[in-house]
């Protein structure tokens, strides 16, 4: 009955608008292809990545091996497919950790304000003062290299990012009329956060999620490259780059292909993020 008190419908037509956005469509297509590759690799790859055929080593791309073979004679296409699994899993779980802990913290800080809020923001400053990659290197060096420790190391540094974004989003919502209305109706802060704040910051979190996902893939590749990520028989893009480094002169494709895989995946995720934020921001939508 009272229009200004009703909740703004953020998601109305959101999907159809996003689908009209070029960045979103291209990014979504790329990401879907990479994800499909990773999924298919669970039950089918062109060749077995655990079988080493030394006779076939370092063959340039050909009809049998579309992306060539590595120094152990493993098929590069199969390696890229299985590597995608590793990259996606590490980055996705790291985003999950960041969201799972960061969002509740950020919402809590926004709802409580005062000392809780101040303490949280100072904690954020502290984490930001540590170069994330340096800390990830320390964490993996201490607890041993491996995919699980890489996930934890990357995930920890996603926490303050999501805390900050959700706090900022929630703070802008708390003074709004529809929140005041539900407070007047006697709803508690937890209920308001779950029912009104979270749905309204979901899109913001989605954008940040795609950014952190992309950064996670880059970070995982960096850690594997220095030998602290997924450990050898398990193929990973960063590790493939490390192996290719000493063979650059004879077989440059060994370095180019995994690099392209990383770039395309990160690009796809960033385009999705751009597409969503273009769709959300009416100021940008008026773009000529």
């Amino acid at each position: 009955m009272n229009p200004p008190l009703s909740e703004p419908e953020v998601s109305a037509g959101f999907l159809s608008r996003a689908l009209a956005n070029r960045s979103f469509v291209i990014g979504f297509t790329i990401t879907a292809i990479v994800a499909a590759m990773a999924l298919v690799s669970f039950f089918w790859t062109p060749y077995d990545v655990t079988r080493l055929i030394v006779a076939d080593r370092m063959q340039p791309p050909s009809f049998e091996h579309p992306l060539g073979t590595d120094h152990f004679g493993r098929d590069m296409l199969s390696m890229i497919m299985v590597g995608a699994r590793n990259s996606i899993a590490v980055a996705l779980v790291a985003v999950g950790i960041g969201m799972g802990i960061g969002v509740p913290l950020g919402c809590w800080a926004a709802a409580r304000g005062g000392i809780v809020d101040e303490a949280l923001m100072r904690f954020n400053d502290l984490v930001f003062a540590f170069p994330a990659l340096l800390s990830a290197i320390m964490i993996t060096a201490i607890f041993g290299p491996g995919a699980i420790n890489a996930i934890i190391a990357i995930g920890i540094f996603n926490i303050p990012v999501f805390a900050r974004v959700s706090r900022a989003g929630a703070l802008s919502l708390w003074p709004r009329e529809f929140i005041l209305a539900s407070r007047a109706a006697g709803k508690g802060k937890v209920l308001i956060t779950v029912e009104h704040i979270l749905p309204n910051i979901a899109n913001l979190l989605l954008v940040q999620g795609t950014i952190q996902f992309a950064l996670g893939i880059l970070a995982e590749a960096g850690l594997s490259y220095v030998g602290l990520g997924a450990q050898p028989p398990m193929p990973s893009w960063g590790r493939m780059l490390f192996d290719a480094q000493t063979r650059m002169v004879v077989a440059p494709y060994l370095a180019i292909i995994p690099g392209m895989a990383i770039i395309v995946t990160v690009l796809g995720l960033n385009l999705i993020g751009d597409g969503i934020s273009d769709t959300l921001d009416p100021k940008l939508r008026r773009r000529p």
Binding site: A221, Y225, I262, I263, V266
Partner: peptide, 18 residues
Amino acid sequence: SQLGVAVPNFWFALLLVY
């Protein structure tokens, strides 16, 4: 710039070396 954001610096380094 969108492409540049997606490039891992150590891969770019390998390319430059090559």
